[in-house]
Amino acid sequence: MTNDPSVHHTVPSSLGVGRLYDEQTEIVQTEIVDGAAVDGNIHVGYWDSATDDRSLNQATDRLTDLVAGRLAAAPGQRLLDVGCGTGRPALRIARATGARVSGISVSNQDIDLARTRADATALADRVDFRYADACALPFDVASFDGAWAIESMMHISDRTIALTEIARTLRPGSPLVITDVLLRSPVTGDTADLVRQTCRAFQSPSLPEPAELRTSLDRAGLEVVEFHDIGEHVRRTYQAFADAFDDVAPSVDDPHYEFFHSTRSLPRFGALPQIGYAFLVARRR
């Protein structure tokens, strides 16, 4: 982890993280970006190149599909979605693989929306969602044939505990796919201030660093088989989401007004060369 204390702040609780998503989910659910509804995806998009003309909605689905490909799940297998958001990735992966999916979140709003989504599809008998903390999973040992965590690790104060819990629920040899914002190198000065503001806005104790992730995975009994920094493929997401917030009238007591609406800090953060994006695959030993 970084040695620069200015990057860190008060450790958020699961209640704080849940409150953040309760407050922001409606915006992500309903806003129009690039002419297409974001439609519930609360993660970055992936573009193959600078000339890739996918909309943000299409690009976020593309990232989900990359995760699904690494899971390589078969019909009837059971998968875990750690930080399921409004359920769109879980439903998409269940549909693509034929697997059963259990999703968890610390946002009651997200869980309600995810269940509503599932009920509106033919997948309700194969996908379930519940309120649960990644550091205390309500599942038995070796319950799952694979798991994924899309932008969940950044919210967790003790990532080793969370990864150990996830590993406990995986059968030996099963994959865990993690995608998350990454701090490539230490930051100082104004850059550290911006990173600290971003952490506060996103209820993150600190941004994961490559060495920290590798150490936490190893301690959790997970072997890294792929580790890529795909930051340049996801970078335009930050500007697209900032544009979406432009048309939103925030409430007077919105604690995130300054970051999301006033200072346009999100695209400035996304443009930092020190900010990357991890796409990694690990396996339960």
Rank of each mutant, 00 (worst) to 15 (best):
I161F: 06
D193L: 15
A36Y: 01
V225H: 11
P89M: 13
H8R: 15
T116K: 08
R95I: 09
R159H: 10
T215A: 12
I27G: 10
A124G: 14
R196D: 14
F241V: 11
V177W: 11
G45A: 06
A94T: 03
A96T: 12
A278N: 12
A120Y: 13
D243Q: 03
G87R: 04
R117E: 03
V281F: 08
I42D: 00
P12A: 04
S6D: 14
A249M: 14
L91D: 02
L176E: 03
Q77R: 08
T30F: 12
F241R: 01
V38T: 11
D61M: 00
T60P: 00
Q203T: 09
D145V: 07
A120S: 15
V248T: 10
Q77P: 02
H8A: 15
R130T: 08
D34T: 04
I178L: 15
T30C: 01
A192P: 04
G276T: 06
D119F: 05
A244E: 07
L80N: 00
D4P: 09
S157P: 06
S157R: 12
A114P: 00
T86W: 00
A149L: 07
H9V: 13
D48W: 10
A90M: 03
I111Y: 14
E23S: 07
S14F: 04
P138A: 06
L56G: 01
A142P: 02
V248P: 09
V67G: 02
Y21R: 04
A36N: 14
A50H: 13
D81C: 05
S174E: 08
R196M: 12
W148N: 04
T215P: 01
N3Y: 10
D110I: 02
V44L: 03
S174A: 14
P75M: 06
R62Q: 05
W47L: 10
L15S: 11
V44P: 00
R171C: 08
L163C: 03
L123G: 05
L222H: 00
I230F: 10
S262E: 14
F241S: 01
Y238Q: 00
P210Y: 10
A114R: 01
A211V: 05
A118V: 04
V281Q: 15
S107E: 02
L137H: 04
R236Y: 01
A244F: 03
T179L: 06
D247V: 09
P5L: 09
A220V: 02
A132T: 13
L80V: 05
A134E: 07
A134T: 10
I150N: 14
V28F: 11
R284K: 13
V11E: 15
R115I: 00
L56I: 04
V187H: 07
S216N: 11
